[in-house]
Amino acid sequence: MRVTRRGWGVVAVVGFCLVMAWKFGPRSLNAIVVPLVVALVAGAITVTRANEPRVSRAAIEEGFVGERRAVSLEADVDRPIAAELADDVGRGLSATGNVAETTLAPERGYSYELELECRGKHEVGPLSLSVTDAFGLVERQFEIDRTTRVVVYPPVYDLRGGSGDDFALLTGAIQESRRDEFDHLREYEHGDSLRNVHWKSAAKRPDDDLVVKEFTAHEDDGTVTVAAESVPETTDEMAAATASVVTYALESAVPVDVVVPDGSASATARHDRRDVLRLLATAGPGTLAAETRREADVLIRADEGGTTVTIDGLEVPFERLAGATIDGGADPRRGVIT
């Protein structure tokens, strides 16, 4: 318990009045001193009897960089208490209203707005709570350690707004995942994917044209594998590019397997992509195994030179594919926090 600045002002007034009473008599000063002393004593008793409020937090919905979320707090108290609260928000988040003066009351909560600035898993809390008396003369401070976590996804860009040739290359790689069983060989034609070349047959006939594999299409869609890697400074760009390619594939009704240096996840439809987005929210830098890069339908790499999407051995700068953001919207070049 401690006296507030307003309380020290009251103490100063009371002290001054006592000095004046000692010099000139107390008769005219009793009407000032007695109410102030009563207010100080009552405030001290009220605050001393106050127990630490039991504060509960509602879960915070996951979201994309640039979005806003509500943080809701509820204190279990027996009666209304004047309080000043300060809720800590970690790096990668910003808040409006997390420091405020309010009244804690039964069945009455407090909420404020949180802005998601950087992808990752972030902590909200702990809460610093100062309980005061009705006049704000005496306060008692509590530190409530309970926190809650919010997961922030990377932004997703609409690839349909990118360059026509580059977009067609990506679309071809995704649609080819629908193939299933091998059917027969045929001569190579301009525009065929190099992944379909039957290299063993080509090695046996070096003077002839290449041959490619034909597959029998089935009603069930295949799965496109998206592999991604980055250096430490560009992990956010990698995550945003991967999330964008994954979202486009799922919108095309093609299931996706995602592989990054520190994990993997799968999704079969856009509404089912949460596991993939959570993986990309915390994905770190690193290099994939050579076999993983070779077997990927789409390989994404981000380094100091930029972010590239490699399809059939052809590298396409991601900036040529990316259009407007469709989920999130902040600059993906901000630092990652995991």
Rank of each mutant, 00 (worst) to 15 (best):
I32R: 07
G25E: 10
P154H: 09
V224D: 02
V156F: 01
L129G: 07
G323K: 08
G335I: 06
A12Y: 14
E187C: 05
K213I: 00
T132L: 06
A283T: 08
L29M: 03
E229M: 03
I60F: 10
P261R: 09
A243I: 00
T148N: 11
R5T: 03
E52Q: 14
P126E: 13
R178T: 07
F167P: 09
V156D: 04
G161K: 14
A269N: 01
D183T: 09
D207Q: 07
V246M: 05
D221W: 08
E295H: 06
P206M: 11
E67G: 06
P232E: 10
G109C: 12
S266R: 15
A322Q: 02
D87V: 07
R274A: 12
A289V: 02
E229W: 01
V138S: 01
S128N: 04
A134Q: 10
T102P: 03
V124G: 10
S28R: 09
F318P: 03
H190Q: 14
G63C: 11
A289T: 02
T48A: 14
F135G: 02
A83S: 02
T223I: 13
I144S: 01
A330W: 05
V156E: 09
R333P: 00
I300A: 12
D257R: 11
L29K: 03
E101T: 00
D88L: 10
P35W: 01
G25V: 11
R278H: 15
T48G: 11
V138N: 06
P26M: 06
E214F: 00
E251Q: 11
G313C: 08
S264Y: 13
K23R: 13
H198P: 04
L40A: 06
Y110K: 12
R195F: 07
D297F: 05
A59K: 07
T103G: 03
A228R: 05
V260T: 11
R160A: 13
R205V: 01
R333A: 08
V260R: 00
R294D: 04
V260D: 00
F167Q: 06
A296G: 02
F182C: 12
R68A: 10
D272Y: 06
T310N: 09
R178C: 01
R293H: 04
E84C: 03
R179S: 11
E291W: 04
D327Y: 14
S163Y: 00
V258Y: 04
V10E: 03
T171K: 11
V246R: 02
A105I: 04
M1N: 01
T235L: 02
A95D: 02
R320A: 08
V41A: 15
D257W: 01
R205M: 04
R69C: 03
A290M: 02
T102F: 07
